[in-house]
Amino acid sequence: MTINNENKNNGETASSAESSINLEASRRNFIFGSVAAAGLTVAPGMMLYQTANARSLSDFSLKDGASSKVRWGMLVNTTKEVDWNKCVEACNKEHGLGNEKDSRDDQKTQYIRVVDVKNKGTGYSMSLPVMCQHCENAPCVDVCPTGASMKRADGIVLVDRHRCIGCRYCMMACPYKARSFVHEVLTDQTENTPRGKGCVESCNMCVSRIDNGQEPACVEASEGAIIFGDLNDPETPIAKILAKHGGKQIRADLKLNPGVHYQGI
């Protein structure tokens, strides 16, 4: 009998889902690049810079396993005029989604979707992308009988698809409808995201890209409207913006402490 502990998995065992990755890929200091730039535009007038000892993505890789010092998170600025569908497309491309042949629309996998919200009283409306919120107190992880749903030490929640028995209890438990069940046999899969009939899957924050020193695909496609980084490090742009301007979590009342934060909701 193996007793599972949600945090025991490091990069390698965590996921057979993440296959071999070229660790030497160029991944130097990209925080200086897109993320910091994004940060600047997210909070106009706020000067952001990377201090010498602030950790950058490249300090963490599969080599060391996921570190519990880090908590990866995202900040979505919904006030920015961007086409969120670009994020959806980037996600689908990255993970090879949308290749179902037989499934009905309500059976197809979506890792990230654009939700339109309208206030009936005032008429105010907005759109925002919603994906797995990478909850700290993740209900999907708690309810999973086999430990296939798990949270890495760095806060990324994902499914070990070799351990998932397809009971779908995690889908019942997720308040954000972030998970999908694979309803048919799939072919044409991307190298980093093996998917399989009868298993549950969801946004894994592009864990193999992160372990490779890159940003998640939706972040890259968001034209700066989503920034990604370590919530635990006060020196990262994401932490600074959150500290200065605040952010909101969807259904914060459920006290799950999602890693995905929003501005403008």
């Binding site: 193996t2 599972n4 999973c144 351990r163 998932c164 009971c167």
Partner: peptide
């Protein structure tokens, strides 16, 4: 009705004791 009934052995050997499902088993 499981997505992977062939993995019964996983359900019977790898327990997550936080899960009420496990307790039900």
């Amino acid at each position: 009705d499981l997505g992977r009934p062939d993995r019964l052995i996983v359900a019977m050997t790898q327990f997550n004791f936080v899960s009420i499902f496990t307790w039900n088993i």
